Computed example of a mutant assay.
Amino acid sequence: MEILDRYIHQLLDQSTPESPIWYKEESDASAPAKWNYMDGCMIKAILELYHITENSRYLEFADHFIDHFVREDGSIVSYDPEEYNLDNVNAGKTLFDLYKLTGKEKYRKGIDTVHSQILGQPRTSTGNFWHKLIYPNQIWLDGLYMALPFYMQYEVEYNDCKNCMDIIDQFKNVRQLMREPLNGLYYHAYDDSRKMFWCDRVTGLSDNFWLRALGWFSMALIDTMEIMPDSLMEQRTELNTIYRELIDAMLPYQDETTGMWYQVVNRGGISPNYLETSGSAIFAYAIMKSVRLGYLPDTYLPFGEKAFQGICDKYLSEENGELQLDGICLVAGLGNTENREGTFEYYMREPIVKNEAKGIAPLILAYIEILMRK
């Protein structure tokens, strides 16, 4: 896949910590760079590329990028743990690798800074983390990916797994609360208080099955299982049951031609629903990785490979001498205001963009799984 190697180097050539080419959410280009989950996704993928290729450029880029944000005392530019925003935990995952690879003590201190948010994060009545302080009593599938693999790695490496059952319980609660038993898919969000305008007053659930949220959940499961020690074999088996059940629920909705999935998963035949890049890339990665790690049998591998190839065929193209990855939903969520109401129409009107981290990073991770096969 020479084209992907070229695309990755094009992205690195055009990016600095102050102005990464893959960050599209900030409308003010002159605004200072912030610690954010999109950069976290990208730098994690670049570090994984380093591990498999041993190309020093990837490590140097990742180190330079994160070094820009982490101060010598471990505090992080623009990051306040007491905002209690789970998205902000995600970039903390890069610090474990960078500390081991560079020996910079400030990265070890930075891990503690991010962990301090975990210690104070508000929780629902079931014990699950609120997605954000500004979204009280709400669980979003996104948040499990943003926070729980970091939390598990901290527990395994620095806390003798004392709170590992807390992580397992949060996954199990989500299965109990947010899974639709009729099709096995998970709703995007849940309001424990039943007060938000977008939720069902009886179940607390939002209305739709958003592809990327389901993808984040699958990544949360597979990445957390990968970190868990053998002393938690029974609990890992429990999570794997949840994970395989999710993949089995997703496969009937996979597009036969491209191998991709639709933005709203179960409504593929309704216009203007579209085959979406980021969520499809996440599932390509998750499926191939889980086969490699033995969490799914080899018979699942073609489903992941087909999704990866379908994305490259449909959305990776060249324009004016530069490669472009299209079909990426910029952002979607359930808001405190009426313009993020979680309807089918809402997910359709969010912008579709090119060359954005939430599509690029999982495609790189899926590509790494292809490289590992070789």
Rank of each mutant, 00 (worst) to 15 (best):
L4A: 05
R6G: 05
R6I: 14
I8F: 09
S15I: 01
E18G: 10
P20F: 02
E25H: 14
A29Q: 15
A33D: 03
M38A: 09
G40D: 07
I43F: 03
K44Q: 13
E48F: 02
L49Q: 09
Y50N: 04
Y50L: 01
N55V: 01
S56A: 09
S56L: 13
E60G: 00
F69V: 00
G74D: 11
Y79P: 02
L86I: 03
D97F: 08
Y99I: 00
Y99K: 11
K100V: 04
K100H: 14
E105L: 03
K106Y: 08
I111W: 11
T113Y: 15
Q117S: 09
Q121H: 15
T124E: 06
F129D: 06
I134L: 14
I134Q: 12
Q138F: 12
I139E: 04
D142C: 11
M146Y: 04
L148A: 02
P149S: 03
Q153G: 06
Y154M: 07
D160K: 14
C161G: 08
N163K: 13
M165R: 04
D166Q: 09
I167E: 00
D169M: 09
F171D: 00
K172Q: 11
Q176T: 14
M178V: 07
E180P: 12
L182M: 06
S193Q: 14
R194M: 13
F197I: 05
D200L: 09
T203H: 10
S206C: 10
A213L: 09
S218F: 08
D223M: 07
M225H: 02
M228F: 13
L232G: 00
M233I: 14
Q235I: 02
Q235C: 06
I247T: 06
L251A: 05
L251S: 05
P252T: 05
W261F: 15
N266L: 00
I270G: 03
E276L: 06
E276P: 07
A281L: 13
A284M: 01
L293A: 09
Y295G: 10
T299M: 06
Y300T: 04
A307S: 15
C312Y: 05
K314E: 07
S317R: 15
S317V: 12
N320D: 10
I328L: 07
V331Y: 09
G335R: 07
T337H: 11
G342M: 08
T343P: 03
T343H: 12
T343Y: 06
T343C: 09
P351W: 10
N355D: 14
P362E: 02
L365W: 11
A366L: 09
